[in-house]
Design a protein around this nucleic acid. Sequence first.
DNA 1: AAAGCGCTCAACCGCAATACC
DNA 2: TGGTATTGCGGTTGAGCGCTT
Length: 219
Amino acid sequence: MGRKLGFQLCHRGSWTREEDQILLSCIEVHGAKKWSSIATKTGLKRSGKSCRLRWLNYLRPDIKRGNISEEEEDLIIRLHKLLGNRLWSLIAGRLPGRTDNEIKNYWNKVIKKKLQRASSAHECQGPQASAATDATSTAVEVKEAECSVYPDASGSQALEDYNWSNSLPISDSPFYLDGEMAGNWAVRELSLPDFYSDHYCSSLDGVLLGPEADLLYFK
DNA sequence: AAAGCGCTCAACCGCAATACC
DNA sequence: TGGTATTGCGGTTGAGCGCTT
């Protein structure tokens, strides 16, 4: 086990059951913080970083095991469309029990493949179909075909033409799920740099990624 | 049977942000 | 206020496994 062999002060490679047990006991006593001190207290030759990662990705009691569901995948695609690769942890935060590492791996494993398949299908349809689409938007299009979440086609602000790559829409209009009003937009006009700024990142959960925002229609 | 290959996912790395002294 | 420690994140790596030849 272990990679990049050479002299290492810290033990590397996969965690054993014994190491997990020792780490868990230590966290029970001292809490899941001060990782470098926990690493020392365990007596394991692991770095604080390694202990933290093991806890977050594997040992936490609320970790959800098993396959990603259709609903979860749908949400991942939609949030990735909005946030890109930058905020895996935020995406994971919308999926209880899932970790950012898991979401990232899942994206690389499953969804990227779907995208590749979808874009090669687009290419087969000729240059007009493939010209304007990046991989992500292709995936969203594919997903939308199966999805039942749409904005109100009649009254609400038309979002079809909205350019999500540059900024976010101004809207406080309702949106609908299966014909019933499911929530309100709570999105202000922001450039993406503003959106990623400290202020808005800290308020993302309430403003853009609150319960209602799971249902946002991403074009 | 075994060698080669591709895939998956746990773990690591480097960097940036934040907290603490 | 500046230096150091800690935490958190995205990108990357590679061991191990299963499938194919």
